[in-house]
Computed example of a mutant assay.
Amino acid sequence: MPLIGLGLATIGASGKTLDVFFPLIAFAGGDLESSNLYNSWNQLMDDNILEIQDVEALNIEDKTTLSALQSLNSNIKLILCRIQEDITIQSIEEAYLKLHLISYKFFQPNTLNLDNLFNTLPNVAWTNNGPIELESINHSILESKRAHRSLEIKSIDKFPRLTDYIVPPGVRIADTSRVRLGAYLSEGTTVMHEGFVNFNAGTLGAAMIEGRISAGVIVGKNSDLGGGSSTMGTLSGGNKVKISVGENSLLGANAGLGIPLGNNCIVEAGLYLTGGSKVEVFDRDMVSQGVVKADQLSNQDNLLFIRNSLSGAVEARINLKSVELNDALHKNQ
């Protein structure tokens, strides 16, 4: 776990850190270059956060990176942030480093301790000129009008969009405002305009995302979230179960999912399946096996969940179909 991130921290008018971009992360026990950087940086640090005054002290061999770090704006500080063990988040620098670790795909969702994340991150205005403190935003708007300069406020939130920091290889994102920093997007993933991926959530392989991946939710490879579909998160509302979608599965348009779904499963369009939903289970010969709560079918493979159009009852049948993605839509070169 020991690692150190090299970050560019944006400092607001009040002197508080607003965000941190980590272009380089070094790991203890990583490959030779990474391990050497970690050891070099670790010797500079008495505390877990250190402001760097002399770029040469970082021993960075890449000349392009070194040059970029030598010409920083006055509101940008160069820092090192060290994480020695995975404990509750203590600082905004650590919070941003953990979000980067997930989006760089060093760690999968739900494998890092993100406790205290929301309390640590400030709510800021995300603009085309970077983050601005909310206490300063009205003055910034006035100044932009006076100078006839563009100031676009893209959102007011604790989380920025992923692509302002990291562009994952081999993905398509139709609307970048709908994918937060901390999202985990595997190569071959396509996120269409109505798709959404929260932090600490994402895809473990090529996937079509036209629905919502809530925080904590992971989607297996070759699976499809249809337009307007939704997965139940754990941030609010009382749900404590981590929802997942298995491999080769389909969540139909406007469907919803409140249980972990197994491999090769289908939830029909428009059906919201919660853990408490009463489901009649049928075997391969369409003989009823009784009624159970949906959460008893969690992580079971080869199921087709439908609502009987005559009785209105929710049924789980053996899924005889296979879900296949259109390869042409996922060769994101």
Rank of each mutant, 00 (worst) to 15 (best):
4 I>F: 01
6 L>K: 04
10 T>F: 10
12 G>R: 02
24 L>G: 02
26 A>M: 02
31 D>T: 09
32 L>I: 15
36 N>Q: 15
40 S>V: 14
46 D>H: 13
48 N>E: 06
50 L>R: 08
51 E>Y: 03
52 I>L: 07
56 E>H: 11
65 T>Y: 05
65 T>L: 15
65 T>W: 04
74 S>D: 14
87 I>L: 12
91 S>E: 01
110 N>M: 06
113 N>H: 11
113 N>G: 06
123 N>V: 09
125 A>C: 05
129 N>C: 08
132 I>L: 11
134 L>S: 05
142 L>Q: 14
144 S>V: 02
153 I>F: 05
153 I>S: 05
156 I>R: 13
160 P>E: 02
161 R>I: 03
161 R>M: 13
165 Y>S: 07
169 P>T: 09
173 I>A: 06
182 G>I: 07
188 G>I: 10
191 V>C: 10
192 M>T: 11
194 E>H: 11
203 T>Q: 01
207 A>F: 02
209 I>L: 03
210 E>F: 08
211 G>K: 10
213 I>G: 08
214 S>G: 04
215 A>Q: 12
216 G>Y: 09
225 L>K: 04
228 G>A: 10
229 S>K: 09
236 S>Y: 15
243 I>V: 12
246 G>S: 06
251 L>D: 03
257 L>M: 07
264 N>L: 01
276 G>P: 04
278 K>H: 12
282 F>A: 11
289 Q>A: 04
295 D>M: 14
301 D>I: 02
313 A>M: 13
320 L>I: 12
322 S>G: 08
327 D>R: 10
331 K>S: 10
